[in-house]
Computed example of a mutant assay.
Amino acid sequence: MSKLLYAILTGFFGAVLLHIIIILGVPHFTGRDAYTRVTAEGAPFVFHPLSAQPDAVGLSNLDPYLRVAVCHFDITRQPLSLIALGGGVDFWSVAIYDREANEIFSMNDRTSVAGDLDVLVATPVQVAQLRKTPIAALAETILVEHPGMEGYVVLRVLAPQASYEADAKTFLADAECLPFIGR
């Protein structure tokens, strides 16, 4: 009797484990994961604004009080520079994700230097090289060590009323997501 009970329990837990693995693996195998969707938005190193309606790949901005833009990158050759002047908006936030949609870093205007976005995303080797030969222009830049080579950035800005709309759109349009070319 105990062998039968052991076999049933083993089968049950094996089935549960298999189902969990399948559910967590579906986005990877279907190409519908967040990174794949963001790369389908367009060229790398460009902030692509999202609209309220889902686009061809299913990305949209569902929060009526935020305007959102996404940018994907590859830092194999050089770091990524994220720059935006936050003077005209009341609140912004940025989040950096790796290829598997794990959040690597996030911040907002309250935790930035002077309310502006000035972040350099680099691999551990690139960060070590930057620290070895410091560049004066990077004194107030936040260095973010990214464990992989590819990822994406989500930039959000608050626009709770129609009067904020123009400033929010200007903020996203002027934001830069570019390869770093020493300053």
Rank of each mutant, 00 (worst) to 15 (best):
Y6W: 12
Y6A: 09
Y6T: 10
A7H: 07
I8S: 05
I8G: 03
L9N: 13
F12M: 12
F13W: 14
F13I: 12
V16W: 11
L18G: 10
H19Y: 14
I20C: 07
I22V: 15
I22C: 03
I22N: 01
I23K: 06
I23A: 13
L24E: 13
L24A: 07
V26Y: 11
P27H: 06
F29R: 11
G31T: 09
R32E: 13
A34M: 15
A34K: 10
V38E: 01
T39F: 03
T39E: 12
T39A: 09
A40G: 13
A40Y: 03
A40N: 14
A40V: 00
A40S: 15
A40M: 11
E41N: 08
E41G: 00
G42D: 08
A43C: 05
F45G: 04
F45H: 13
V46I: 12
V46P: 02
F47I: 07
H48L: 08
P49G: 01
P49S: 09
L50D: 03
S51R: 13
S51C: 00
A52S: 13
Q53Y: 08
Q53I: 14
D55L: 05
D55W: 06
D55R: 06
A56N: 13
G58Y: 07
L59G: 04
L59C: 04
S60A: 14
N61Q: 15
L62N: 12
L62H: 11
D63Q: 09
D63Y: 06
P64W: 05
Y65H: 13
L66K: 08
R67T: 05
V68H: 03
A69M: 04
A69K: 00
A69E: 02
C71F: 05
F73Q: 02
F73V: 04
T76F: 11
R77T: 11
R77N: 11
P79M: 03
P79L: 05
P79N: 08
L80F: 03
S81A: 14
S81H: 13
L82I: 07
L82K: 02
I83C: 00
I83R: 11
V89K: 00
V89N: 00
V89I: 11
V89F: 05
D90G: 15
D90H: 07
